[in-house]
Structure formats: C-alpha cells, structure tokens
Design a protein around this nucleic acid. Structure first.
Lengths: 190, 190
DNA sequence: ACCTGAACACCGTTCAAGT
DNA sequence: ACCTGAACACCGTTCAAGT
C-alpha cells in the first residue's frame, strides 16, 4: 500500500459514516474494520477522535468550496448559482438520507472537541462568504452588513430544510420546503 | 419518594442533557448519577434507550404544543403567534446553547431507534399543524397544499437558524438570520 | 514509518438477587 | 413495586512492542 493511502481511506470512510450517522456515533473500531486495519492504527494517523473530526471537516469544506467556486466561475448568474447550491444539499440527502457535515456537526456542537468546533465555524464562514459573492452578482439595495445577514439566512434556511427532510426521511419534503422558499420566503409579509 | 418521582426526574434530567449534548451522547450512567440512582434502575422504568428517547420526545412535544396553543388562543394574531414561536426557539438557544429536541433528533435521525424516529415525525407534524392554523388566521391566496408547504418552510427556516446559531455559538447569529427572513425571505425574488 | 495486542475506564443491556 | 451488583460486549485512548 502506498504512503498516505490508509490515512486517506480513513478520512473517506469516516466522512460517509459521519454524514450518515453523526460524529458521536463514529466508532474507531467500525472505521478500522471498514478500512481493513486495527483501531490502534487509526490512532497513529489521528491521535484523538478530535484530530480525525477536524481533518475530516477541513477537507470536506475545501472540496465543497472547490465545487462551489467552479459553479461560480462557469455560470456567473445569481439564480443558477443558488440553484446549484440547493442541488448539492439535495444530492447528499438522496444519498442514503445523509446530511451536510457542517449541519450535523452544528447539531452535535456542544459535545465536540474545540478543534472540531473551529472547523464548524470555518465551514459556515466560507459558505456564507460564497453566498455573499453570489448575491453580489446582481444589483441590490442592501449594505454589506445586511447582505451578510441575507447570505446567512439562505445558509440557515437550506440547512434547516435538509435537517427537517432528514427527520421526515423524505426528500420530497426538502423539495416542498424549497418550493415555498422561492414563492415568498418563509414569513408572511405583513 | 412518592410513586413516579424517579421516572419523572429521569425524564427531566434526560431532556436537558439531550438538548445540550444530543441523544447519542446521553449516558444512562450520567443520568443515574444526576438523579441519584443506579443505571440499572433506569432500565426498570425505561427498558431500552429507545424507550426513554421516545417517552422524552413525546412529553416534549406535548408541552411544546400546550404552550403554543396557549399563545394561539390568547393572541389570535398571525404575526404575534409567529413572533412567540420564534421566541421559544431563541430561549432554548440562550439556555446554554441548547437546541430543540426535534431538531437535534432529526440530525441524529438515521441512528435513532424506530420508536424515537416516530416521535420526531410526530413533533414535525404537530408543529407544522399549528403553523398552518396560525397562517390561516389571516386571508391568503394559497390552497391547502401550498399552505402546508409554507408552514413547513417556516418550521425548517427556524430550525435551521437555531442549528446554525448553535454552530456559531452565538445567539446574535439567530437574531440576524431571523431579521433577514423578515425582510424578504431567504431567496432573491428574480 | 506504520501497525499491532493488551490494558484502561467508559458505554447500553441483561438478569438474578435483594427490599 | 422498585432498586441493585455483577456480568456481557461494546466504546476511545494509551503504550510498549513488533516490522
């Protein structure tokens, strides 16, 4: 086996396990079995579960953003970008009712090691940065502060739709919620 | 100790523990220590962790709804009802960065016992029922199907705001997101 | 450099035993 | 009716030992 193969295999296996069952349910022994190694070997690459979780979230954020930036540069259209954004979250849901790593870790936040919490912040920050960039593609009347709040609102609304749809075990729920978002936003005007 | 006291004490302690650290992190031994009894005693009242989780979620939903119905009957005003709804979710967040039981269990959904999953569905169903009732207080142009989607959108948007704010460890984030929701809903119109 | 086996204190669960 | 202690197979973690 080439150098770094085990480490990458662990990260890959861990990612899908966390997205499926949550970070707390992630077991070094299950992980070891999946990769074909002993649990103590995983501790060689990731001394603590926190180290693994942090590496996992960091890599996840990077790849997520790489994809989003690709979307941004190929479309340069606000509505298309947001539609693609929505589709990524939908796709994870379809894949065995999985959830966004950032979302599931936010739910488990209080119980996370400090180094993992930092990665949750980083994920939220970088994704809302991207959304700000997208919203800025077309003219609007919001100042920078209001714009960031708007981006966070979109981020939260999509995370929430995914969370609720997962709880309903039904991707259609995700579609219905997003349909309603498009119509008028979640709240009554007056 | 009077009859049923231990059982109720277990439910109360378990609720705040789950809201703080998640269902998966709930430990029968911690719970036993908190209540002042041995872990095997808890199994007398709740044979499995699933039994405890289901009882917990059921009671939580009932109390939540009792409060919301109180709000509904005293105000009978759409905007006031939704503002109260938002405030309840804010209050749980303020209390030591806790989260809605329904939300945190939705995140852990795949790992939950079937009887707990059912209670997650029940929570979602009854809260959106209440939101439908509230939205119906004032005239609108949506058919029953669209109305339910609207209610689910509000439900998801608020859950999402709580989730993201928790991940940021900052109640202000919750306020900012809801501020943006009120302005125009999360998505750009055109 | 990378992996392992054995040990530690934890977990949910079971069950025979106590009152 | 309610509680307990001891046992079971599981956790993450550590560490001395192997190659």
């Amino acid at each position: 086996m080439a150098t770094g193969d085990t480490k990458q295999a662990v990260l890959m296996a861990a990612r899908s396990m966390v997205q499926a069952r949550g970070y707390n349910s992630l077991s070094f022994r299950d992980l070891a079995t999946a990769v074909g190694v002993k649990s103590s070997s995983i501790h060689y690459h990731f001394p603590t579960k926190g180290d693994l979780g942090a590496a996992l979230a960091h890599q996840y954020t990077d790849e997520f953003l790489e994809y989003l930036n690709q979307v941004f540069y190929t479309s340069k259209d606000r509505r298309t970008c947001i539609k693609s954004y929505i589709d990524v979250f939908r796709a994870t849901l379809v894949r065995e009712n999985r959830m966004c790593l950032g979302g599931i870790m936010a739910a488990e936040y209080t119980d996370l090691a400090a180094e993992v919490q930092v990665q949750v912040h980083r994920f939220t920050q970088l994704l809302t940065d991207w959304l700000v960039k997208v919203l800025d593609l077309e003219p609007h009347d919001r100042d920078p502060v209001a714009l960031r709040k708007w981006a966070m609102a979109i981020f939260a609304a999509v995370e929430g739709a995914q969370l609720v749809a997962r709880g309903c075990d039904d991707v259609q729920v995700y579609d219905h919620i997003l349909e309603a978002y498009w119509v008028a936003g979640p709240f009554p005007a007056a």
